[in-house]
């Protein structure tokens, strides 16, 4: 049973999306067509290229290694970042696709269970 609050919010959101202007709808349409073109062609976006990822990782690591520790100048005291945190950050920036694969496997196990239960 839906409550008055739910109805009110749902109505407001429906009106919001129904009132998107032509320019925004055009951008959405372009985004969709681009996703279909690239997705169906099986191409990966340049930003997800492993070379770009490794290049970024290398550049960041070099920046950490070569930067003064702590920085020699500057008005503000330099915050510290331990190498473990930096490593986690790099891992996070580079690992999105691997996470997806794991999540997908989990998700399909669930879908299969749903169809067996159903």
């Amino acid at each position: 049973m839906s409550t008055r609050i739910e109805e009110r919010v749902r109505l407001a959101l429906d009106e919001d999306v129904a009132s998107y202007d032509a320019a925004l709808l055009s951008r959405l349409n372009r985004s969709r067509q681009q996703a279909l073109d690239q997705g169906l062609a099986g191409r990966r976006r340049a930003m997800h290229s492993p070379w770009l990822g490794w290049a970024t990782a290398t550049a960041l690591l070099l920046a950490v290694v070569l930067s003064p520790w702590p920085p020699a100048s500057g008005p503000a005291p330099a915050p510290t970042m331990d190498t473990a945190a930096a490593g986690e950050d790099l891992e996070l920036l580079l690992a999105a696709d691997e996470i997806e694969v794991i999540e997908d496997l989990e998700f399909y196990a669930w879908l299969q269970q749903q169809s067996l239960d159903g």
């Binding site: 951008r27 959405l28 969709r32 996703a35 690239q38 997705g39 990966r44 976006r45």
Partner: peptide, 15 residues
């Protein structure tokens, strides 16, 4: 938001 939606659409179509 537009970038996230486009990226999401691409991953969805591809996968």
């Amino acid at each position: 938001a537009l970038e996230l939606v486009q990226d999401g659409m691409l991953v969805f179509v591809r996968s």
